[in-house]
Simulated assay, not measured.
Amino acid sequence: MTTIAVTGHMDLAAQATGPIREGLHALLSGFRGGALAGRSCLARGADCLFAEELLALGGRLSVIIPSRDYREAVVRPDDLPRFDALRDAAADVTVMPYEHAGPGAYEAANVRLLQGADRLLAVWDGSVPSGRGGGTADTVAAARAAGVTVDVLWPPGSRRTGFRS
């Protein structure tokens, strides 16, 4: 079984979601010959797109929730139905032992995400790590340091909504 963890930007521009979804589908389809398992924290954006494509291909989804209050504190009201549906479709859900969402909880969730992963799929624009451990670039750096193969997906023309270069 191949276990693929995902990290990616939350603030994807609307026109980027179609090409990113297509890229995720193509990358994940390459692993369909064997059993496919994926791990996601179900953050808005790349994490949810990955989870949807994984499930559509018959993969096994494992969800890692960063904190006990993550759903109430972080998930936007209009994203709740999607979050709940993906969480409910998961084969297993791990809630990290943090009461409140925040940098420490995100960093710990990303460490857990990478444990035992064969690959990390990063929906990432190549921005530099913040050094806080919870962001996309930080997770890519941690995966590379741990020897986990990293596949980067950032289709031409993709951009983030609030990102300033």
Rank of each mutant, 00 (worst) to 15 (best):
52 E>I: 04
103 P>S: 07
40 S>H: 07
60 R>Q: 14
82 R>F: 00
17 T>M: 07
21 R>C: 04
98 Y>Q: 02
58 G>Q: 04
78 D>M: 04
52 E>F: 09
30 G>Y: 10
38 G>D: 06
60 R>T: 14
25 H>W: 10
73 A>T: 14
20 I>H: 10
103 P>K: 05
89 A>W: 08
70 Y>V: 03
84 D>L: 08
61 L>V: 10
18 G>D: 10
33 G>S: 15
69 D>N: 14
23 G>P: 13
59 G>H: 08
11 D>M: 00
58 G>W: 09
54 L>M: 02
17 T>V: 11
35 A>D: 13
48 C>I: 10
16 A>N: 11
91 A>M: 03
96 M>V: 08
102 G>R: 04
34 G>L: 04
103 P>F: 00
6 V>I: 15
59 G>F: 07
60 R>P: 07
79 D>A: 13
50 F>D: 01
35 A>Y: 07
58 G>N: 10
55 L>I: 13
86 L>K: 09
91 A>R: 15
66 P>D: 00
93 V>C: 05
27 L>Q: 14
24 L>A: 07
61 L>H: 10
69 D>R: 06
76 R>G: 06
81 P>K: 01
60 R>Y: 03
83 F>V: 03
24 L>I: 09
74 V>G: 00
105 A>H: 14
18 G>F: 00
18 G>M: 00
84 D>H: 06
21 R>H: 02
6 V>R: 03
25 H>E: 09
22 E>P: 00
77 P>R: 09
104 G>E: 13
33 G>R: 15
92 D>K: 08
10 M>L: 13
100 H>D: 05
27 L>H: 15
76 R>Y: 10
50 F>Y: 12
89 A>F: 04
75 V>L: 01
54 L>I: 10
101 A>I: 08
11 D>R: 10
41 C>N: 15
102 G>T: 02
62 S>K: 03
9 H>K: 10
8 G>K: 02
53 E>L: 06
93 V>L: 01
85 A>L: 01
81 P>W: 02
57 L>V: 05
7 T>N: 05
101 A>W: 09
27 L>M: 01
39 R>T: 05
92 D>S: 15
17 T>W: 02
56 A>K: 13
99 E>I: 06
30 G>C: 08
61 L>K: 08
85 A>I: 00
23 G>H: 02
85 A>M: 06
30 G>T: 10
38 G>R: 08
59 G>V: 11
74 V>Y: 06
23 G>T: 01
86 L>S: 10
96 M>H: 13
36 L>N: 14
101 A>D: 14
33 G>E: 13
48 C>N: 07
76 R>L: 05
6 V>F: 01
71 R>G: 04
91 A>G: 15
40 S>P: 11
27 L>N: 04
88 D>K: 12
89 A>C: 03
16 A>M: 02
57 L>D: 08
20 I>S: 12
